[in-house]
Design a protein around this nucleic acid. Structure first.
Length: 194
DNA sequence: ACGCTGATGAAG
DNA sequence: TTCATCAGCGTT
């Protein structure tokens, strides 16, 4: 089946619904001479100013402004001085929300052999796909460099599991929300305990 | 269990 | 202008 790019209408919906439906979709990164593709197996939802783990919990700032805009744009930021995290903006304008891409299975342009490590964790995904801050704000519904596509594959809903999000212990009650979505027994699932 | 590393935003 | 903090990862 031909793979089809996801449109804005896919992203401009309830973040948890989008998160679950993103599992199994293809992350595509095009560079001159390279076409990296991975199948998404782990994501996390960050929703609204009331979510104390969401960067928008402190309101609109230069960094978080992108999350207040239309859905379908990339939110890329540097974490721990070394790694980039790639998120996709969801929901309506002025409702700040995004989905962090945390795990994927190599499909094209990447070694298939070490599926256990290469795309396990948000920092490894951005490194393998050459995603950095120059891609922050990209409109994934039109970008030639970075987008999400559906090739007709889907995991069974029974394979979708949830847990609290990783490394957000600082977020008080929000730390307990089961807003991490992942595929049972996927090779690239985070080993860190939420 | 810890060091690496620098943008970010809050405080002053 | 400082300063603590951080949606991680690699090595011990």
């Amino acid at each position: 089946m031909i793979s089809q790019r996801l449109a804005r209408s896919f992203f401009a919906r309830d973040t948890h619904l989008v998160a679950k439906q993103l599992l199994g979709k293809l992350l595509i990164r095009k560079l001159p001479g390279d076409n990296f593709i991975g199948r998404i197996t782990e994501v996390e939802a960050y929703v609204g100013e009331d979510d104390l783990a969401c960067h928008a919990s402190r309101g609109k700032t230069p960094r978080t402004a992108i999350m207040y805009g239309p859905a379908g744009h990339a939110y890329v930021y540097l974490i721990y001085g070394m790694y980039y995290c790639f998120n996709i903006v969801t929901e309506k304008k002025d409702l700040p929300a995004a989905i962090l891409i945390r795990g994927a299975i190599p499909v094209n342009g990447l070694p298939r052999s070490d599926a256990q490590h290469l795309l396990r964790g948000p920092g490894r995904i951005t490194r393998a796909f050459h995603i950095d801050k120059t891609l922050n704000g990209q409109d994934l519904t039109i970008s030639k460099k970075l987008y999400i596509a559906d090739d007709g594959f889907s995991f069974s809903p029974r394979q979708i599991q949830t847990s609290p999000r990783i490394n957000v212990a600082y977020a008080g009650p929000s730390a307990l929300y089961p807003w991490r979505y992942f595929i049972q027994n996927a090779p690239a699932n985070s080993s860190a305990q939420p």
